[in-house]
Amino acid sequence: TIVDLQGQIPTPLDTVKVAFVGHGTAEDPCWIAYQNGAETLAKSIRNVEVVFRYSKEDIALQVDMVREEIARGVDAIIVSIAHETALDAPVQEARDAGIVVIAFDTDDPEGAAGNARQAFVTSTITGKGICYDTSYMRGELVIDYFDGFPKGGHVFFPNEGPGATWSDQSRQGLVEYFEERGYIKGEDWFLDEIDATYDVATAEERITAYILAHPEIDVIVPCGGCTSIASVLAQEALEMEPEELPIFSWPHGPVDARGIRSGLVIAGVTDSHSNSGVLP
């Protein structure tokens, strides 16, 4: 609450040290947007020092980074909680040290009941967070595009972060929208998921191989910004025609835009990462 935080707010003359500790990569456009938003605001405010650190999906490294920022004596830690339990102890340690802790991008599945973070900043329509929404809304776009999804159809879901809470939420959003429309996974339709990794080149290679080996795929719904980019690159390399294998992307940059212009990408759903970087 505001009352709880008042004693932790530095005076205007103090340098406010804020550390963003994310599970992603500095090369991912969505994390670039987070960082740009936070740094732009910091420049307009006196005495604010912002540091961004990325663990590249290495949760153990992210835990170490949080503890390093505690030792550095920062005033606030903004952290993406991409694992159900791994961040519980370091976040509590930060709170015990008098540090403000706010979650962004991805929250504990149980919210405040599962982690001691003091708030979660996101943009959402359903109330279930960014990652859930992007796939929930793409589920609607997919079914509407086909005017009812084909019986026994296959959705290819290349996932750049399998096992992470954000990707679990993304998958859940897609599955639950299909269920709301009466399509049961494993009966009426099938979700074909692979570990595509965070590396765009590796993701492109794996997506290309899967497309070639599985002609039964009806549509691609990438899980993440890197896999959205890689899906377009894979289809370009295969010289696929527009709408031959529709992509419903999670767009983050110029490659996605190129895919939209060429007709490989039918539609995309994204979010305001820069605002989520500003608000904490």
Results as ranks from 00 to 15, higher is better:
residue 118 Q to C: 06
residue 9 I to H: 01
residue 48 V to P: 05
residue 159 N to V: 08
residue 120 F to S: 02
residue 229 I to H: 06
residue 217 I to C: 06
residue 85 T to H: 12
residue 171 R to A: 13
residue 138 R to W: 00
residue 59 I to F: 11
residue 265 V to Y: 04
residue 131 C to N: 15
residue 237 A to F: 04
residue 86 A to R: 11
residue 121 V to R: 05
residue 236 E to F: 07
residue 48 V to Q: 12
residue 85 T to C: 01
residue 214 H to I: 10
residue 214 H to Q: 12
residue 172 Q to S: 15
residue 79 V to C: 12
residue 74 V to S: 05
residue 207 I to H: 09
residue 129 G to A: 03
residue 75 D to L: 01
residue 181 R to T: 01
residue 137 M to S: 08
residue 220 I to G: 08
residue 81 I to Y: 01
residue 67 R to N: 13
residue 40 T to K: 14
residue 260 I to M: 15
residue 219 V to M: 10
residue 238 L to I: 01
residue 270 T to P: 01
residue 109 P to G: 08
residue 195 D to K: 10
residue 109 P to A: 00
residue 131 C to M: 00
residue 78 I to C: 11
residue 240 M to R: 07
residue 121 V to P: 00
residue 200 V to H: 00
residue 94 A to D: 09
residue 238 L to M: 13
residue 110 E to V: 09
residue 220 I to W: 12
residue 65 M to H: 07
residue 237 A to K: 15
residue 180 E to N: 14
residue 43 K to N: 12
residue 260 I to V: 15
residue 264 L to G: 07
residue 89 A to M: 12
residue 265 V to R: 06
residue 274 S to T: 12
residue 152 G to R: 05
residue 160 E to I: 06
residue 142 V to S: 06
residue 118 Q to Y: 03
residue 43 K to R: 13
residue 97 A to I: 06
residue 264 L to R: 04
residue 270 T to M: 06
residue 7 G to I: 06
residue 13 L to I: 14
residue 228 S to K: 05
residue 21 V to Y: 04
residue 165 T to Y: 02
residue 269 V to C: 11
residue 73 G to N: 10
residue 144 D to Q: 14
residue 109 P to Q: 09
residue 272 S to Q: 11
residue 123 S to P: 00
residue 182 G to C: 13
residue 157 F to K: 02
residue 105 D to A: 07
residue 130 I to S: 14
residue 95 R to F: 03
residue 103 A to G: 11
residue 86 A to P: 01
residue 246 P to N: 04
residue 133 D to L: 02
residue 59 I to D: 10
residue 29 P to Y: 08
residue 213 A to G: 00
residue 79 V to G: 01
residue 179 E to W: 00
residue 228 S to F: 08
residue 62 Q to W: 07
residue 54 Y to Q: 02
residue 256 D to T: 00
residue 216 E to Y: 05
residue 67 R to A: 09
residue 145 Y to A: 14
residue 276 S to Y: 08
residue 88 D to E: 13
residue 87 L to A: 04
residue 214 H to F: 02
residue 106 T to M: 11
residue 98 G to D: 03
